[in-house]
Structure formats: C-alpha cells, structure tokens
Amino acid sequence: MSVAPVPPSTTAQTDGALIRAEDLWRTYVMGAEEIHALRGVSFTIAPNEYVAVMGPSGSGKSTLMNLIGCLDTPSRGRYVLRGKVVSEMNDDELAAIRNREIGFVFQTFNLLPRATALHNVELPLVYAGIPKEERLAQARRALEMVDLADRMSHKPNELSGGQRQRVAVARALVMGPAILLADEPTGNLDTVTGEEIMGLFERLHAGGNTIILVTHEKDIADHAHRTIHIRDGKIESDEERRR
C-alpha cells in the first residue's frame, strides 16, 4: 500500500524541527480568576516522529492539543510549525494552516452525517479551493489508501465504527499535512477495531508521516516512539522509547 509522503518542510530557523514550542502558556480568565491551563511548555518534534501526549484529564493535555492543532493560540510563548510562527497568526491564517498542515482525527470521528464518505474526505480540498475533478481524484486516492475504495458513496451511518474512523483518517491525510493529530482515536472503538486503527497509524508512520497521538491509555500510547507526559500544565516527562 502506498502512503502519501510528507512534503519537504519549508526552510526555517528550526534547524530541522517540524514543531518548535517555546514556553507556551495558556491562561483562561474566569471572572476575576485566572486559570493557567499550560504553564510554560517547551518541546520540539522532528519530521516523521511518532509522539504520544499523555496525561490525566485536567492536565492541560487538551489545551496543548488545541495549540498544536492551531485551533487556539497561546497566551504567551512561541509556536513554530514548519518554520511558520503560528502564535502570531490571525483567524484566517490559522484556518489556512489547519487546512494545509494539520490532519485531525477525533475520538467521535466528527464526520458530516449527511455527506458520503467521499464528500467527507473531499471537504478539506473544498476549503483549499481545489477544482472539483482534482478534488474527487484526490479524495478517492485517500480512501483507497485506507482500504475503503468500495465504501465511497456510503454515509457515516452506513459504516462501522472502524470504517468511520478510517474515513476520518483519509480526510486528515488528503491534503498531505505536516502532522496527523489524533485525539483519543480509539476511544469510541472496541479493542480489535482500535488495534486495526493503530495498525493503520503504524503504516502511515512507516510511509513518512508525522503523528501526534493524544491519549490517556497506556496501551495506545505504547504504539508511539516517544511519550510526553503532561501534568498540571507542565511537561512531567518526555522520553524516547528505543525499539
């Protein structure tokens, strides 16, 4: 099976790093109170790394995921993705980055219920302004990549959980993003189907993709080659796992 390789990253001052996070803070103001969800998080991620972000709920894990996914910007600190300083971008620039550089895979799949698998996968290409013919061709290729060539015209409610998550993975990969960002991708799947999805991730990683996995399950995190533990808004540990 062929896997879309990561395009070569744009030259930057990141000395080869795909992601460089420097002292990220995220503060929420609740009435008179300030809540620090992240308190100075720094790390770098190189191309084709397979990283798990772990931590209990309330640890700031989700906040970090939102920052990495460019859904949110830090209150303080610098976040550089492929040489672009995301922490200083406006809404539209963030949308463009999400479109081109981030491939989201959610716990609840988040497919559009009324759209077919093909149309769901086509969606990021629509927002990228790619012409229809090309869009359909690319979406088909992405679905073939996750072995769903025969389910293209099915709607989400006509697919099994594992198939839905594979559609979501195809949608995440269709733009050839810098990172695949998966938030509890097996959380809504049974163990067997979960392993199947993790196998797919394995293959994608072997094909050159960079994967960041957010989870609180040790078994799932063990698939990654590096694990970052978050607790109370700070990095508790960051360890490579030699294989």
Partner: peptide, 16 residues
C-alpha cells in the same frame, strides 16, 4: 455548532 467546529478544524475560514 459541532459541524461548524469540524469545518473550521478542516480549514474553513470565517467567510466560508
């Protein structure tokens, strides 16, 4: 709202 969130995550801008 959820659908709007998904669309935004996939790269929809405000004007979209």
């Amino acid at each position: 709202v959820r659908e709007i969130g998904v669309r935004k995550a996939l790269g929809a801008r405000r004007r979209d």
